[in-house]
Design a protein around this nucleic acid. Structure first.
Lengths: 334, 334
DNA sequence: ACGGGCCGTGTAATCGATTACAAGCGCGTG
DNA sequence: CACGCGCTTGTAATCGATTACACGGCCCGT
């Protein structure tokens, strides 16, 4: 910057003003630098191919224009779509995205949050690894804006963006019922995750509304291997349920994997439905429902919420009351 | 840091030494701080809940311990697995991952690279959006280590990690031939991408090796919509090919989508194969091959290459000669 | 007993921006 | 004519670390 100042025969202060004014052009801020000087500085900067040092700026302004996303894993269609939604929205506002994975562990999540706060990120979007949220709340209390996505934590007063898990599960279960199935089982789940609990609740409400009393619920994880195992157990039963509702696509996938081992014909054996949907879903079984979550929208919404809170914090406005968005799911019949 | 220094009754220099020594523990570096002082500083830091300001450190050391990945898009199984591989490997080394999307545009790619270099990232992993690579080479020449992944660019002397596209396509085509199909078409592709060209080359070599002369090649994009359109055209033909090799999974998916519209029975109409593979692949058709790319391994390899180059650059060693890794693909029969 | 080396620690410059404060200048007004 | 106001620009402090250099003390050899 000194070189540019020298070349333009002004002070570094003036160079800085030109550059910042330039960034904030359109804002009602008072024009501080005269036209002629501005031209000279701009020309010099161009000539010297000057690149502003963002780290130095961050040190002074205490803002890195970077936000982080902390998710339990990365290679997962849902989280990816989420990340894409976030990235799009942040890009518009000139922010960058720092990616971090908690590897499905609350401890690792805590560690990563610590590292992130050292880096002075302007905000963090967290997909909690568990229901425990003290460490997340602590970060928020420390002044770093935080938004939760997809999953809820206990006893935290934080902004969040969630899918209507209960409603989605309710709709899918009703659809199965309307198709004439009454012996429906709910497969998979993890009591530590709000999503699993909410989906189960929707499932049970649909059964209750239909006047059914007994419920067939088989928790046991949220992954492909879990679905595989659950289906394996199911197939050993004398009188298995007719229809199956899987807590998510991974469990569903594991289930169908197991079925496929019996031959392609076996795929038609159960009427299946599950949460989540990908472009591959139409190929997975003959008759089925998917509950599609608006992942990209959820990401975008979370990003907007976070950006709002960041500007609020910047203006040192009174901490706004936490907001919680529920986005609708969409029932897809294949 | 000053507070910690005050509390421990030492200078900030000593505090800094304690902290850095701690980080570099195990290194053969000379121990600079005596045991007693170290304990006092550590205790004070703990008591005050002191968090080092990473931005300030970066400004001084000119290293952010952050590397960036710039990919054409994010919501894509391959890039995701790539990102996960990279994140894992970087995490071990204490680096963070900055995520950036070039939206499949070379111009956007150039813009993003500019932004990234302002941020003083320690290195960049690029999945080039096109064959043009001047802007990427320029970044590397500017001193920021760069590694290319998945796709090659023209006339750049850069480290890169690629899949054996030619070999993978060759193997899949041979498998189709061995199954008795001789009228095989190659579908999809983009002359601007090295992957597409290499896969086509492998396809053609397999045909040549089998003594077949006429080749049925139908380029026309790399996306789902392109596959859909290609299949649409195919189905209008009087004598369509018996077997189809799609340049990637997206094209393949589009093709099957179109088939599915004709009813589930239509899915068996062609023998299909394609590059890429996901957990969903087994469900896509009755008879088919997938060429699986080791995406996570490619990411990890790229990360290692980059880290190596970063430490080299740090030691201001002579610029190493560019290395190019080709990772084997795996042919999967479903 | 004295000089040299080593070890532990402190002083202060530095990284590259932002910005509070001050200063110079031109111009309108009482 | 002098005063003051507003506009543009410069001076220098600051953000929070790292690190070159200096310095004092201690041990040791001759």
């Amino acid at each position: 910057m000194r070189d540019v100042a020298l070349a333009a025969e002004v002070s570094t202060a003036t160079v800085s003003r030109v550059l910042n004014e330039d960034a904030a052009r359109g804002l009602g801020a008072v024009a501080k630098v005269s036209g002629a000087t501005r031209e000279r500085v701009l020309a010099a900067a161009l000539r010297l191919d000057y690149k502003l040092n963002h780290v130095a700026r961050s040190l002074k302004t205490r803002s890195t224009r970077t936000i982080a996303i902390l998710a339990p894993e990365l290679a997962n269609d849902f989280f990816m779509a989420l990340a894409e939604g976030i990235e799009q929205e942040l890009g518009k506002a000139g922010y960058m995205l720092l990616l971090s994975s908690s590897s499905n562990s609350a401890d690792e999540e805590k560690r990563r949050l610590g590292v992130l706060s050292q880096r002075l990120v302007d905000g963090i979007i967290v997909v909690p690894a568990s229901r425990r949220g003290e460490h997340i709340q602590a970060i928020a209390d420390g002044g770093t804006p935080v938004v939760l996505v997809d999953r809820l934590v206990e006893g935290a007063a934080l902004d969040c963006v969630l899918a209507d898990n209960e409603g989605g599960a309710y709709a899918a279960t009703r659809a199965l019922l309307a198709d004439g199935f009454s012996r429906i089982a709910f497969l998979g789940g993890n009591p530590a995750l709000s999503t699993a609990q909410e989906r189960l609740a929707g499932f049970e409400r649909a059964l209750a509304d239909a006047g059914l009393t007994g419920r067939d619920v088989r928790p046991g994880g949220m992954g492909i291997a879990d679905g595989y195992r659950l289906m394996d157990e199911l197939m050993a039963e004398a009188e298995p349920p007719e229809a199956l509702f899987a807590v998510n696509l991974l469990v569903h996938l594991g289930m169908e994997r197991r079925l496929l081992e019996e031959g392609r014909a076996a795929l038609g054996r159960f009427a299946m439905a599950s949460f989540d949907e990908t472009p591959y879903s139409p190929f997975m079984t003959a008759c089925r429902y998917s509950v599609a979550q608006p992942a990209a929208d959820m990401g975008a919404a979370a990003a907007r919420l976070l950006l709002e809170r960041i500007t609020l914090a910047g203006a040192s406005a009174p901490a706004a009351v936490p907001r919680c968005l529920r986005l609708d799911t969409r029932l897809i019949r294949h």
